[in-house]
Deep mutational scan, measured.
Amino acid sequence: GAPPLPPYSAGGREVTMKKGDILTLLNSTNKDWWKVEVNDRQGFVPAAYVKKLDSGTGKELVLALYDYQEK
């Protein structure tokens, strides 16, 4: 199953993602919540729920390892 959710501390809205989604990583300075862009929406997802990909394009991409439903 998915890892436990860290307390929400990102101070911005969250976004929903599905397992297998490829998201653009915008900011990973917060260790628990990373800012991503998905379907032209920006928001935060739990860092433990995604994995960085080596895209080779200069853009940082992450793979959704679990479904996440915004609150």
Score class of each variant (00 low, 15 high):
Glu70Trp: 09
Glu37Ile: 08
Thr29Gln: 14
Val38Tyr: 13
Thr57Leu: 12
Leu25Gln: 01
Ala47Thr: 03
Thr16Tyr: 10
Asn27His: 05
Leu63Arg: 06
Gly43Glu: 03
Pro7Ser: 10
Thr57Tyr: 12
Pro6His: 02
Ile22Asp: 00
Ala64Arg: 00
Trp34Ala: 02
Glu60His: 11
Ala2His: 10
Trp34Tyr: 06
Tyr66Val: 05
Ser28Phe: 06
Arg41Leu: 13
Ser9Tyr: 09
Asn27Ala: 06
Asp67Ala: 04
Gly56Pro: 15
Ala10Arg: 07
Gly1Leu: 07
Glu60Ile: 15
Asp32Trp: 15
Lys52His: 09
Val45Arg: 00
Lys19Val: 08
Lys71Pro: 11
Leu23Cys: 08
Ala47Ser: 14
Pro7Arg: 10
Ser9Val: 09
Leu25Ser: 01
Leu26Trp: 03
Ile22Val: 12
Leu63Lys: 06
Pro7Lys: 10
Asn39Pro: 05
Ser9Leu: 11
Glu37Leu: 06
Leu26Ile: 14
Val15Glu: 03
Gly11Ser: 13
Lys18Val: 11
Gly56Asp: 15
Gly58Arg: 08
Leu25Cys: 05
Pro3Trp: 05
Gln42Leu: 07
Gly56Phe: 11
Ala2Pro: 15
Leu61Pro: 02
Lys18Ile: 08
Trp34Asn: 00
Ala64Val: 08
Lys35Tyr: 15
Ala2Trp: 06
Ser9Lys: 14
Asp67Val: 02
Asp54Ser: 13
Glu37Gly: 07
Pro7His: 12
Asp67Cys: 03
Leu65Tyr: 03
Ala47Leu: 02
Tyr68Val: 02
Lys35Arg: 11
Thr24Pro: 14
Gly20Phe: 03
Asp67Trp: 03
Leu61Gln: 12
Lys51Glu: 11
Pro7Tyr: 04
Pro4Trp: 06
Ser55His: 10
Gly20Ser: 02
Val36Ser: 00
Gly43Leu: 05
Ile22Phe: 05
Val45Ser: 00
Gly43Cys: 04
Ala2Thr: 12
Ala64Tyr: 01
Lys18Gln: 08
Ala48Val: 11
Gly1Glu: 15
Trp33Ile: 01
Asp21Ala: 04
Pro6Trp: 02
Ala64Leu: 03
Leu5Ala: 07
Gln42Cys: 09
Gly1Arg: 06
Gly58Gln: 08
Phe44Tyr: 14
Gly11Thr: 14
Val50Asn: 00
Lys31Gly: 09
Met17Gly: 00
Asn30Val: 03
Tyr8Met: 13
Tyr68Ile: 03
Asp54Cys: 10
Gly1Ile: 06
Glu70Asn: 09
Asp54Gln: 11
Leu65Phe: 03
Leu25Met: 03
Pro46Phe: 02
Ser9Cys: 12
Gln42Ile: 15
Thr29Cys: 09
Leu63Pro: 00
Asp21Lys: 02
Gly11Pro: 15
Gly43Tyr: 07
Gly56Asn: 13
Tyr66Met: 05
Lys52Asp: 04
Tyr49Asp: 02
Lys19Thr: 06
Asn39Tyr: 13
Trp34Leu: 04
Ala10Lys: 07
Leu65Ser: 02
Ile22Arg: 04
Leu25Gly: 00
Gln69Ser: 14
Gln69Cys: 09
Lys59Gln: 14
Gly1His: 13
Lys51Arg: 11
Lys31Leu: 11
Asp21Cys: 05
Val62Leu: 10
Asp67Met: 03
Lys51Trp: 06
Glu14Lys: 12
Met17Gln: 01
Lys59Asp: 10
Asp54Gly: 14
